[in-house]
Computed example of a mutant assay.
Amino acid sequence: MNIEQDPNAVIDIAYIAVGRRSAAGSAQALSALSSTVTQQGVDISSSSSRVTSLENSVNSTSNGLATKASTKSLNSLSSTVTSQSNTQTAQARSITQLQSTVGEHTSQISQLANSTADSNGKISATYSVKLAAAQNGLQYVAGFGLSLDNNSGVFQSQFVVAADRFAVIRDVAGNVTSPFVIDNGQVFIADAVIGTASITNAKIANGAITTAKIGVAEIDTLRIRGNAVTIPTSASTSVVSQGSGIGSWIGVIAVAVTMDQPGHIQVNFSCTQSFGHGIRDYGFRLLINGGVYASFSGTWADGFPGIAYSLPVDAGTYVMQVDWYGQDANVSIANKNLFAMGAKR
């Protein structure tokens, strides 16, 4: 038949089928091949397909119950090219299905591949594998799908997996490891390098963090190696110190802070001071590495004198000491507390 003379020509080898049926079982094989060209006005369509189907079944009786076991295999290939309303479209498709059933128990594998392109620039390619099972009235599904298309105007690819457990396996000389596993909705990563992460809730058993910026932290126990963050340091004593004369300074308490980079040191001192009777002189001063940075003095004043001081420092170790004098033994101080903290920012 000359297709050029007859644009509506159809070549169709409908099917070739062989088979055998009996009460105990059956077997069937079907192969179909078709090629068609059709035209309606200016619209033209050309398509070809090939289908192969195999089916087998066996009927048996066990313990008085009839059971049927069957298998089905299907392979279909098709290609179509159309020209419609000044748009040309080409499509190719492949479908493979395998199914096995015994009684009410069924397993199935389906594979689909499809590619499409048209003269308007739309392109689509998809590939999927689906595994299905049925048992006791329940359906179970697993599989994956891979696609690439520009239907939204830009190319977008997708890889979607449906599985209870997904793992990436690495085999080196027979040593099998899994660097990445998703098991029942939980992700397990053996080793990860993450550029930027946004984490709502984190549970870290053992973490090594180079740089961290934490807005609000609630920590039961904080241990910082190498004093990388300056820990506040303090000293306190309830020992009573008695005056021994004006200008006779007594070192009453001291602490040290080590800074590994420039910053500020904040110092706070407090105590209780008592006078026996009459007017007596007293004085306080703050020394940092032997130099006087703050001082004050006065006369008879029972109460809670204190010192608060802050200064910029370079990297190094700084010893903060508070000195005090009282005019005589009728002046005394007790409950002395000195607090110092280094701030790096």
Rank of each mutant, 00 (worst) to 15 (best):
M1A: 11
I13N: 15
A14I: 05
A14R: 10
A14F: 03
V18Y: 11
G25C: 11
T36V: 11
V37G: 03
Q40L: 08
D43K: 10
S48Q: 05
N56V: 05
G64Q: 11
A69D: 05
A69R: 10
A69F: 04
T71R: 09
T71C: 03
T71M: 03
N75L: 07
N75P: 00
S78C: 06
T80C: 01
Q84A: 14
S94M: 06
T96E: 13
Q97G: 09
G103E: 02
E104H: 05
I109T: 11
L112K: 07
L112P: 01
A113Q: 10
A113F: 02
A117K: 09
S124F: 06
T126E: 13
Y127K: 15
L131F: 13
A132K: 08
N136P: 06
S147R: 06
D149M: 10
D149T: 12
D149C: 07
S152M: 06
V154W: 00
S157M: 02
V160R: 14
A162Q: 15
A163N: 13
F166Y: 15
A167Q: 15
V176W: 01
T177E: 12
S178D: 05
P179E: 10
G185S: 11
D191K: 09
A192H: 04
V193S: 13
A197I: 01
T200A: 13
T200L: 11
A202R: 02
G207W: 02
G207D: 04
G207V: 04
A208R: 12
A208H: 08
T210P: 04
I214V: 13
D220S: 12
T221I: 13
L222V: 13
R223N: 06
N227P: 01
T237W: 10
T237Y: 08
V240K: 15
V240T: 14
V240S: 11
W249F: 13
V252I: 14
A254E: 07
A254Q: 13
P262W: 07
G263A: 01
F269R: 08
Q273W: 00
D281Y: 10
N289E: 10
S295D: 09
W300P: 00
D302E: 10
G303H: 12
F304K: 07
P305T: 05
S310H: 02
D314Q: 14
A315V: 00
V319I: 15
M320F: 01
V322N: 05
V322Y: 08
Q327H: 11
Q327E: 13
A334E: 03
K336P: 00
A343W: 07
